[in-house]
């Protein structure tokens, strides 16, 4: 019962995050909404595991947390530098010099 309540709360929050992702207006708003959506997905996977009586879902939740982090960093890096191969801000500055 308590897991159903948690699931319902997460679903509502996910819808709100989707509203922000659709409204934008800037790219960063959308990335923020997707990042927040990812955190809620991690919680959702964990709660669903308990709801279905199969806590082995947690391994997937852990992996999703990692992928969410790496994905956000990769998207931001891509939009900032235009490619994923650069080593960071210092390397970019050196290239300009």
């Amino acid at each position: 019962m308590m897991f159903a309540a948690g699931t319902a709360a997460i679903v509502v929050a996910m819808l709100l995050a989707l509203v922000r992702a659709f409204l934008g207006p800037s790219l960063y708003d959308r990335v923020l909404a997707v990042n927040s959506f990812g955190t809620k997905t991690v919680l959702m996977i964990a709660v669903l595991g308990f709801l279905a009586g199969r806590p082995d879902f947690l391994d997937i939740a852990l992996l999703y947390a990692l992928i969410n982090f790496i994905g956000i960093i990769a998207v931001l890096k891509f939009f900032r530098y235009g490619d994923l191969g650069r080593a960071g801000p210092k390397a970019a500055e050196e290239e300009i010099k």
Partner: peptide, 28 residues
């Protein structure tokens, strides 16, 4: 679960209500 759910919803509500991207980060 209920308290956490409430905080998650409040955070998502802030994501929609707050005026610009920096203040929305606090809600996230």
């Amino acid at each position: 679960l209920v308290g956490g759910g409430a905080f998650v919803i409040v955070g998502a509500l802030g994501l929609v209500r707050l005026p610009d991207v920096y203040s929305r980060m606090h809600a996230a």
